[in-house]
Write a protein that binds this DNA or RNA. Structure first.
Length: 204
DNA sequence: ATCGGGATAGCCT
DNA sequence: GGCTATCCCGATT
């Protein structure tokens, strides 16, 4: 793993304008960004290594398919850069609301690479092997201490925000995970990951 | 490969 | 109020 001289880095919060780009471009551009959580237990940081785009109105796999507007999906109709969290059984999953405004697109964060706060992450992940701390959407929220409290907040605001991270040069593309019941949408190549990064989720 | 957790949401009546 | 499905995970076979 690459050596990082922590402390020489400054965590620069991304500009709001960053989120105003086409959804599929943003999904790729998110790779390498840092998710930073100023948690009560300390600083927790993960580098985004895998994302999935959900193209609201025309995408059967999206909660907002057909512009379905409910209490849960409401935030996706708001400003790009808002946080969309939702609960699935025992897990919280976290998304980035994408452009254009009034079109309910979002990008699911599927995996991150642990960067800072490793001891706390290990505890949150019940001493599992490091490879399994953050290699899935439900796992990374536990490792980073993310809960439904973040619903509707903005990704540029503390305590949970996105910061400039590392340049990612090799990007792979493929179909999304866990949406078997979504007809045509099953095959859309809307999943992006950093090629060969060991923290990319297992496809089962 | 399968199963059940224990949390909503959304749709139905 | 009831029913069903879910952008998942961990344990168990």
């Amino acid at each position: 793993m690459k050596q990082r001289k922590w402390g020489l880095f400054k965590l620069n919060i991304v500009k709001r304008a960053f989120f105003y780009q086409p959804t599929l471009d943003l999904a790729k551009d998110l790779l390498g960004k840092y998710i930073v959580h100023e948690h009560s237990s300390g600083l927790l940081v993960g580098k985004i290594v895998e994302t999935e785009a959900y193209m609201g109105p025309e995408d059967r796999a999206a909660h907002s398919f057909g512009n379905r507007r409910t209490k849960r999906t409401e935030v996706m109709f708001g400003e790009p850069g808002l946080i969309y969290t939702y609960q699935m059984h025992t897990h919280t999953l976290i998304n980035v609301v994408a452009a254009p405004v009034d079109t309910p697109n979002a990008i699911l964060i599927r995996a991150v690479e642990p960067i800072e706060g490793l001891e706390q992450m290990k505890e949150f992940r019940k001493n599992q092997p490091m490879k399994q701390w953050t290699n899935g959407p439900g796992k990374l929220t536990k490792a980073l201490g993310i809960t439904m409290e973040s619903y509707g907040k903005h990704w540029t605001e503390k305590p949970l925000y996105m910061a400039e991270g590392e340049k990612v040069t090799a990007i792979s593309t493929g179909p999304r995970i866990g949406i078997e019941n979504s007809g045509e949408a099953v095959h859309y190549p809307y999943r992006f990951w950093e090629t060969d990064n060991p923290f990319v989720s297992k496809t089962r």
